[in-house]
Design a protein around this nucleic acid. Sequence first.
DNA 1: ATGAAAGCGCTAACAT
DNA 2: ATGTTAGCGCTTTCAT
Lengths: 332, 332
Amino acid sequence: VVRVTILDVAERAGVSRQTVSRAMNDSPGIDPETRERVLAVARALGYRPSTVARGLKTNRTTTLGLVVPDIANPFFAEVVRGASEVAYAAGYSVLLCNTTESPEREYATLEMLEAHRVDGLLLVSPRLTDAQLRSAVSALTPVVLVNRLQARRPGLASVLVNDASGAQVAVEHLNSRGHRNIGFLGGQNDSHSARERREGYRRAVRRAGLPLDPRWCEGSPPTVEGGRTAAQDLLARHPELTALLAYNDLVALGVLQACEELERPVPDSLALVGWDDIVFSAWVSPPLTTMRMPKAQLGEVAMQQLFELIEGPERAPEPTTLDAELIVRGTT
Amino acid sequence: VVRVTILDVAERAGVSRQTVSRAMNDSPGIDPETRERVLAVARALGYRPSTVARGLKTNRTTTLGLVVPDIANPFFAEVVRGASEVAYAAGYSVLLCNTTESPEREYATLEMLEAHRVDGLLLVSPRLTDAQLRSAVSALTPVVLVNRLQARRPGLASVLVNDASGAQVAVEHLNSRGHRNIGFLGGQNDSHSARERREGYRRAVRRAGLPLDPRWCEGSPPTVEGGRTAAQDLLARHPELTALLAYNDLVALGVLQACEELERPVPDSLALVGWDDIVFSAWVSPPLTTMRMPKAQLGEVAMQQLFELIEGPERAPEPTTLDAELIVRGTT
DNA sequence: ATGAAAGCGCTAACAT
DNA sequence: ATGTTAGCGCTTTCAT
């Protein structure tokens, strides 16, 4: 593949390469007629200005990094879609990186993005510790953290979902349905959002004057199988529980399976609220009541923040907070 | 952010930039001791060679384009994951692009990837016509088409799933369960795979000596709702049908909903085979019998093919074919 | 309104 | 084994 360069166009149009550059970039100081002529030649030749040459000169690549733990997880996939749409609309390209939840890989990924001189970075990194995160992104240009708080500093923003207040809404909903013994199931201790949701649940239960037993809280991997096993266990040991708030919908689906096996009809014998509202939650039987995460919006808002940082990196903006929304369906 | 360049390292290490380059690239012709010293300095300074400068010089960007219709679709998300993993292992970065099934957007995307001088392209484009596709990728370097055939030419490869033989397996399975009146539901006419599966179904039914009625075939959007509506319709008009092959699992889930509404228990009153094996198919009730698509493998194999093309672009390799696998669960 | 010169950070080719 | 020269394809600065 032999590439058309700016010189080819210049020669063919009988102008200098500056003039071609001006035409391609809508710069001022060029006769409209010349511009048209140049653009016509460029089109005819199939000239596509090299972003790599331009990037070397301008120090801007119109490329962004987007780092997620697992693109095949429907939650992150939606975030990625939201973010990509905003980037595309702004004329930016996105380097997508999977970290598979491995810290070493995350470091390697960030180095690679640095080498590519991305103009900014969107980072979804639930598992790195604050210190790890700080050192990892220190060398990088504007960064937006998704669902993750970090000390404010210039060039860094975060977009969060208010897990604690979401948990409160969920608990109040269960309480309004007459439940008093409410448990919390799932999530891992090293996950930011699991801690937040669990804490929010605790506070809400206390605030509502309901009984609170630490044994009503049980962790699990954030998967269907993890939820099933943990629910089997928790419900066997604590038959007094009449309602469960699950860490996420996958866990909640596992709870549904467990309830079927235990012959505890949902919602009559056990009420259940999930979290995320993944598409499939609406199709299971009974359809899942859940706290809907604004998934695409999370990606969109984060990307918008990133553009603000790119345009004015001096500011250290307030963290943006989005809210989860209660979707009442058949399990409560 | 002030960047460390090769000259900074050279100066600090007391060598020329060429020597730094040799050290960073493991090139021969450098004293091991010098290399170590240089690498130490580079590490100390946090030197990260610019892939954009290197790309300008070498004409290789170690960046690939990955174009999918919708990253939030779990099927494509898995393909993307498989492809990304292989790319990452080979030290390549991936520009991910969503086309949202819009041809104009797909063109714009390909132009952008061209401008970025990607070293290769993985294209999942079920909706573009052959002619559109041909012109769209003509300017681009090595291209691998996923699930899509194209005239063989150098620098172009395809990875396909054998839809027709998969359909045959599904039909034979239903036949072995004693079903004779088998319908086909879902998919659109402008989708390559929908046509292939439908044709495969027809051939298999004929080959098995079963009755074949064109009215037993009905199209629908490839969604749950599309499947539900189409199934309502088809089953009402053709009560003689005892089994259905669905275009994909989403459609099949819609069929399950319709059967519940029509009070036709699955699999006793209607047997059902889906296609894709998305994660949730195993969790619905009854769990879905389906043709499992090798999703991640599709991405992996495609990416491997792409690397082969990149290394030796003269060849026009045979299309690679993968097979769908019958997963028998509760709906048959 | 247009052009000439310089240089972004790197590596290939050629000295030494 | 190391250094020097040149140039990748653009844009910026400064002339004209």
